[in-house]
Computed example of a mutant assay.
Amino acid sequence: MIDVQRLRVLRMVAEHGSFNKAAAALRLTPSAVSQHIAALERSLGAQVVARSTRGVTLTQAGRIMVGAAESVAAELELARQQVDRLNTGRVQLTVATFTSGGRHLLPGALARLLATHPHTVLHVREGEPEDTLPLVRQGAVDLALAYHFDGPLPTGPGPGSSLHWTALLEDPLHVVLPEGHRLAGRESLDIAELAAEPWVLGCSKTEAYLRRYAERAGFEPEMRGTTTDYFFARSLVAAGMGISLIPSIALVPAVPGVHAVPVKAPAPTRHIGVATIDRRRDHPHVTTFIRALREQAAQQPESGHG
């Protein structure tokens, strides 16, 4: 029989990439973590991690077992919620979201959900997709409002196929320029036209995305600053520090002194959607909430240039 605690230890090793970091997260000693993994390997008759001086990586057997660990954790959390519902008569729904998406999509969707299910106990957790999508797989949250660029979903270790993705909207990025900039009157811009400009950006992933586009255009962008807030980044543009690359929904509320111009096709775009796991997405509250998010996304106006 496979020990559930050993599966939990393996999941943490996969998440952190080392025995020492997993031990710290679990409040165990590295030796205890190593013993759990060794015992799991003995019970399976297969190696689940490959050890090296750079840390540990999952073997094929390890990836299979991490997927099983995610499923077990999700089932136990779902069972706990069902027991809680029996004891209290209330349904709890935990929603994870990234900041700009949550600001524009969640309030209206939450209001729609509560109008249909007024006794729902709601919890909201803020975080980036690479942090929240693994929580969906583990059953720690019921669904996550998330995004990705032109790559796959950042699902973390284990089989991302266990996630069900419902697309909500396309969120193209705009170049944000100071008022009076020589290019501010253009209807659209090519990234290559901005090779000589300094940049201030609103998140590290946008910076990585810009660098990929800039490399294709044959230049190295000069970074003057990276923030964790798009509003702050636009304020720095208004102050004359540089230009920025901002998703459409993060252009609201307006910041005086800046002008947003669309990027020419193929424009860099965030793909926004909601992630669930199959065993949760047919739950009436989850179904209602996803429908509410889709309705809210459909009402998003086209971004202005302010």
Rank of each mutant, 00 (worst) to 15 (best):
V83M: 08
P198N: 06
P256I: 08
G45Q: 13
V49G: 00
Y213A: 15
R85H: 14
R281A: 11
Q60E: 15
E41Q: 12
A111H: 10
A217D: 08
K264L: 14
A217M: 05
T59V: 12
A167Q: 14
E170R: 14
F149G: 15
A111L: 01
A238K: 06
S244P: 03
G156K: 01
G156A: 08
H164F: 10
S248L: 10
T228E: 10
E170Y: 03
R54E: 14
G185Y: 14
A217E: 02
W165Q: 06
Q82S: 13
F19I: 07
G108L: 06
H119G: 11
R63P: 00
A69D: 03
K264M: 13
G151M: 01
A46R: 13
A109F: 00
A14C: 08
I243K: 03
R137H: 13
P198K: 04
P154T: 14
S34L: 05
D150Y: 10
E207W: 06
F232T: 10
R280Y: 10
V83G: 09
P159L: 04
R63K: 14
P198S: 11
T166W: 04
E126A: 04
T287P: 02
D282T: 15
N87V: 15
L26M: 12
V56P: 02
S248W: 00
P134R: 00
L106Q: 02
R112T: 07
F289G: 00
L40M: 15
A208T: 11
L28P: 06
I272W: 00
S303G: 09
R27I: 10
D142M: 07
A217G: 06
T287W: 08
G151K: 03
A265F: 08
F19D: 00
L135K: 11
I64F: 02
S204W: 08
Q35H: 15
D171W: 01
G156T: 12
R6Q: 14
P118E: 08
E15T: 10
S100A: 15
Y147E: 10
A96K: 04
G67R: 01
A298S: 15
H148W: 03
M241P: 00
E15H: 09
Q300W: 09
A22D: 03
N20E: 15
G102S: 03
E128H: 10
V72H: 12
T228F: 13
T99S: 09
V274E: 02
G89K: 06
V33D: 06
I277G: 00
Q92D: 11
H123S: 12
L106P: 01
S248Q: 15
L133W: 07
A74R: 05
P198Q: 09
V136P: 06
H117M: 10
K205Q: 06
S71E: 15
S248Y: 12
V141H: 08
F231A: 14
A233M: 05
L7F: 05
G160Y: 01
